[in-house]
Design a protein around this nucleic acid. Structure first.
Lengths: 218, 218
DNA sequence: GTCTATACCCGGATAGAC
DNA sequence: GTCTATCCGGGTATAGAC
């Protein structure tokens, strides 16, 4: 690969990278379902067999795109957390970032959540998820103290809340306007706060239930 | 269609109905993605063109299956609500039923939430959703009083919670054992209760915030 | 209402030349 | 590393006979 402009054949400095970029584009407006290696090849002006020199198959390319998407999300998440100190606020920010990402990169989000990529076959994906999981879990732990047995359930509930709002957003539940993403993200953040508060209240009721707390019931 | 056992050709009392039933089966174990009219036809021993006498295209059959799934879910929901009087409990039961349905009829659930069926083209789907929406909304209204402006957001949050838990369940987040569905459903129900409590608390803080309530902050 | 036959389109993937 | 050529499979859908 030393000679560059070579004959009339198509040439790339780096077809592998170009394929990933094109796949991101193609998926960002069209979704994973309709994405095909053939189409990507056409776009880049190479034949359908060329990609096989860089990826074993379609799924391997998709995995690379998934990694890219996760890195994107991680960056967004860090930005959203920046400057927030209070654990509940940080948790709410995670939910907000999650929903925003889904709204802004719909199809990349779908790739991550619906494509059913085999994470065993593609450990890169797991690796790219790691820092995100860590950020999330550190927020949960900061909130409830590491010893809290209910921490895991809270983490799950927050995750479900964010995920649920994201899907409702993509479903048009918040409308189709530009504001929809903001509405959904705000809703998820508030729901997260409510969850945190409600959980604390319910656990108080169970453990050291005082008359005062009990009186709130119904 | 008066003569029944006629010649050696394949015959059905009602191919239309049989197609729906077969599609349900095929989708219940294999998912929508891989479902094809061709396969369904083979199963029933008719040729690939036969279905077109009853359905305009593949999607029309899928719509019929979706209606079936919604009816199933509605029945489950009613059963789950039976005997519960307290609004929070009823709301939690809705979430529980939702997650259970997702766990037990994975692929039918996927059809409903991911297949992207065009509800404008298929008003039957909207019609089948109606009674479910009504049941859900009546629970929300019973809880917050019809005038509460936050009712809509609560409804959304509960929906998101149920949906989120359902998806996490299908993702293996609660394990793959037979107990996974129960765990997820329980989690969704508890999260719903926490949501209801937390929301009440947060709104008190805003509206008639007393020193006592305020003190709970942080 | 169902069949036969067929046309059409798409995608994935491989062998072998350059 | 890319191309040419080619095979495979799959599905959707239609026309026309019975």
């Amino acid at each position: 690969m030393t000679a560059k402009a070579k004959s009339d054949r198509y040439h790339h400095g780096d077809l592998r990278t170009a394929l990933i970029a094109t796949a991101v584009e193609l998926i960002e407006d069209g979704g994973v379902r309709t994405f095909s290696l053939a189409e990507a090849s056409r776009r880049l002006g190479v034949t359908v067999s060329a990609p096989y020199a860089h990826f074993a198959d379609r799924e391997e390319l998709l995995a690379a795109v998934a990694v890219h998407a996760l890195e994107l999300f991680h960056a967004d998440l860090q930005a959203e957390l920046k400057g927030l100190a209070e654990p509940p606020d940080r948790l709410a920010a995670v939910a907000r970032a999650y929903v925003r990402f889904a709204g802004i990169h719909r199809h990349l989000f779908e790739l991550l959540s619906e494509a059913g990529l085999d994470k065993v076959r593609h450990p890169e994906i797991k690796a790219a998820e790691r820092p995100i999981d860590d950020a999330f879990l550190s927020c949960v732990r900061a909130l409830s103290g590491a010893e809290d047995p209910a921490a895991a359930e809270l983490a799950t509930a927050v995750e479900a809340t964010a995920h649920g709002h994201a899907l409702l957003l993509l479903d048009g539940h918040f409308g189709r306007s530009r504001k929809a993403t903001a509405r959904a993200a705000g809703g998820a953040a508030r729901a997260t706060l409510a969850l945190v508060e409600g959980r604390r209240l319910l656990s108080e009721r169970v453990s050291g239930a005082t008359g005062l707390v009990k009186r709130r019931r119904r």
